[in-house]
Simulated assay, not measured.
Amino acid sequence: MAKILIVDDAKFMRNNLTVILEKNQHAIVGEAENGKDAIALYKQHQPDLVTMDITMPVMNGIDAIKEIKLIDPDSKIIVCSAMGQQKVVVEAIEAGAQDFIVKPFDENRVMETVNNVLTKLID
């Protein structure tokens, strides 16, 4: 069971991910609606994995990824983005994200991506 931090400015997106992840035996240690809160929660909970939205108020996902990577270079981050944001996803991967999932969420794709990234954690 992994400890996961969910970061998205849309509550229903956080809820969707929470349902999928908890159903698959993962623990949600926190939820943030912007990058600034995500960094504070990351420091507090040291999650095994972060799901990070890109477009958020206060601080966007790319900046939050860079900050989290400074705190913990081994952090595992999956970017969540809407279709057609390839450029932003590439930017997020360059900033340090390991993978991405596309909104709206497909449960199988979410779990496949989460499991792949968490497996790399063990290797």
Rank of each mutant, 00 (worst) to 15 (best):
M1K: 14
M1I: 13
M1F: 14
A2I: 07
K3P: 08
L5D: 02
I6L: 08
V7G: 02
V7W: 04
D8G: 04
D9E: 10
D9L: 08
A10F: 08
F12Q: 12
F12E: 12
F12M: 13
M13E: 13
N16L: 12
L17E: 01
T18E: 15
T18K: 15
T18M: 13
V19D: 14
I20K: 02
K23I: 13
K23D: 15
N24R: 14
N24S: 15
H26M: 04
I28S: 01
V29M: 06
G30E: 09
G30F: 07
E31H: 15
E33L: 13
K36N: 09
A38S: 10
I39K: 03
I39V: 12
I39R: 00
A40V: 13
A40W: 08
L41Y: 03
Y42Q: 00
Y42K: 01
K43R: 04
K43E: 02
Q44M: 10
Q46W: 12
D48I: 05
D48W: 06
D48K: 05
L49W: 02
L49T: 04
L49E: 00
V50C: 09
V50A: 09
T51M: 02
M52H: 00
D53M: 00
I54C: 03
I54R: 01
T55M: 14
P57V: 00
P57C: 00
P57F: 06
P57Q: 06
V58W: 09
M59Q: 11
G61T: 00
G61E: 01
I62M: 07
I62N: 01
D63E: 15
A64M: 07
A64N: 07
A64S: 02
K66G: 09
I68V: 10
I68T: 07
L70N: 10
I71L: 14
D72G: 05
D72L: 06
D74Q: 15
S75Q: 05
S75L: 03
S75E: 03
K76C: 11
I77F: 02
I77M: 00
I78F: 04
V79E: 06
C80V: 11
C80F: 06
S81F: 09
A82W: 02
A82L: 09
M83Q: 13
M83I: 15
G84I: 00
Q86P: 07
K87M: 07
K87L: 06
K87S: 05
K87Y: 03
V89F: 02
V89P: 01
V89C: 04
V89Q: 04
V90M: 06
E91H: 05
A92T: 09
I93F: 10
E94H: 12
A95K: 08
G96R: 03
G96K: 04
A97Y: 11
Q98Y: 15
D99W: 11
D99T: 13
D99L: 11
F100P: 01
K103F: 03
P104N: 06
P104C: 05
D106M: 09
D106F: 08
E107W: 11
E107G: 09
N108Y: 11
N108H: 08
V110T: 07
M111N: 01
E112L: 09
E112Y: 14
T113E: 01
N115T: 11
N116T: 10
V117P: 00
T119F: 13
T119K: 14
I122W: 15
I122Y: 15
